[in-house]
Design a protein around this nucleic acid. Structure first.
Lengths: 145, 145
DNA sequence: CTGAATATTTCAGGATGTCAAGTAACTGGG
DNA sequence: CCCAGTTACTTGACATCCTGAAATATTCAG
């Protein structure tokens, strides 16, 4: 069976690529603005949101955000200075420091998430069926490693 | 007529929001990597790609990228130092400097765009009809100001 | 011509990011 | 047990990005 692989110059594919670029730029922008409204930079907001899901050792934060661990040190320093996160010792391994949100940090993370959901509601323009179809397509796209 | 506006807690909407976040993170990442393969930072790649479409005065670059004009000075400085961009005088207004890609800059921009198109081809996993539907939905989303 | 507005740059300062080096702690073979 | 090698985190140096305020040059309105 022959899969119709879109040629790189296929106008429709190009248009979709263009649109994805626009969506990415717009949501990235809105994420930064939402973070700023909470007095956070984008990077700080990403780390805090990650930790709100689950406290993590420094190294694992770096892995998830695909950056060097030394970079995380500074970001967590700033979050800790603002009492949004604290470094906890790891029971099993004294080298490891687990970063966990404080209560205030968890509150800020929730508030950030809510304001993001709100900002992301151009989805309101889509019907339920469209959202279902969109979900499946996005899954396909993310799934394609 | 009552429009079914998805409540903020609608599980399907939340899932789609989650997926969009994943797509944004992934494409942003891939953009940075593609830029790095061309020896550019993400910001430099964005400016160069913008200028490849059309030369622009410094101020307009800042407006499109939603940042301060003083920021653009440095980025164009670095692109100019690498002979990818040049500042040209504006015929009508001697205050204005128009940044335009050099031939080499245009080449790099094309190459960058091609490698991005390639990186963005999880679209290959979608049928033509799906891509059509995706295009319309993305349009709706971007259109929703 | 003069004063206000505009385009760009410069500077100071903070945040992000990499890389290399340093410290502390774990691990496995002897 | 001990030591060599690895792992986790931090530190310091350095480049880039980004903002906001001030300086310069030019345009524009009256």
């Amino acid at each position: 069976m022959t899969v119709t692989r879109p040629r790189r110059t296929d106008p429709l594919t190009l248009e979709v690529v263009e649109l994805i670029g626009a969506v990415v730029a717009r949501y990235y922008q809105e994420y930064e603005e939402a973070a700023a409204r909470h007095g956070l930079t984008g990077a700080q907001a990403r780390v805090l949101s990650l930790l709100a899901l689950e406290p993590l050792p420094m190294r694992q934060i770096a892995q998830r955000l695909k950056c060097e661990p030394s970079n995380i040190t500074g970001i967590v320093d700033r979050l800790e200075a603002r009492q949004l996160v604290e470094r906890q010792p790891s029971p099993g391994d004294r080298r490891v420091k687990v970063a966990a949100p404080t209560e205030e940090g968890a509150r800020v993370a929730r508030s950030l998430r809510d304001s993001l959901d709100f900002a992301r509601e151009p989805l309101a323009g889509l019907s339920r069926d469209e959202r279902l179809a969109l979900r499946d397509m996005l899954k396909t796209m993310v799934g394609a490693e």
